[in-house]
Computed example of a mutant assay.
Amino acid sequence: MAGKIYIIGAGPGDPKNRTLRMLEAMKESDVVVAYTTYAELVKDLLDGKEVITARMKEELLRAKVAIKKALEGHTVAVISSGDPQVYGMASPTLEMMCANNINVDVEIIPGVTAALAAAAKLGSPLSMDFAVISLSDLLVPADEILYRVRKAAEGDFVIALYNPINKPLLIKAMEIISEYRKAETPVGIIKSAYRDNEEVIVTNLKEWNNFMDKINMITIMIVGNSKTYVCNGKMITPRGYTSRYDYVNAFNS
Rank of each mutant, 00 (worst) to 15 (best):
V140K: 11
I52T: 02
A114M: 08
V132R: 02
L139W: 10
F157C: 13
E59H: 10
M97L: 08
M221S: 07
D213C: 04
S81L: 02
C231W: 01
A153D: 10
A2D: 14
M96D: 06
K4T: 07
D213H: 09
I133F: 13
N252G: 04
V51M: 07
A131P: 03
A160P: 04
T37R: 12
L94D: 04
L146C: 07
R150T: 02
I79T: 01
P186R: 05
V65R: 06
D137P: 03
V42H: 07
K206D: 13
K227N: 11
G240W: 11
V140E: 09
T113C: 15
S124H: 12
V202T: 09
T228W: 07
E95G: 11
N204H: 02
Y38W: 10
A63E: 00
A114I: 02
K68M: 10
R150I: 00
T37S: 13
I218F: 09
R148D: 10
K69Q: 10
L205P: 04
L41C: 03
E144N: 14
E28A: 15
S178V: 03
N252I: 11
D47T: 11
A173M: 01
S134N: 13
A66V: 05
Y247W: 11
A142D: 06
C98M: 15
P15Y: 07
N210Q: 09
L116N: 10
M56R: 00
V200W: 01
M217F: 08
S136K: 00
M174S: 05
S81M: 04
V33Y: 00
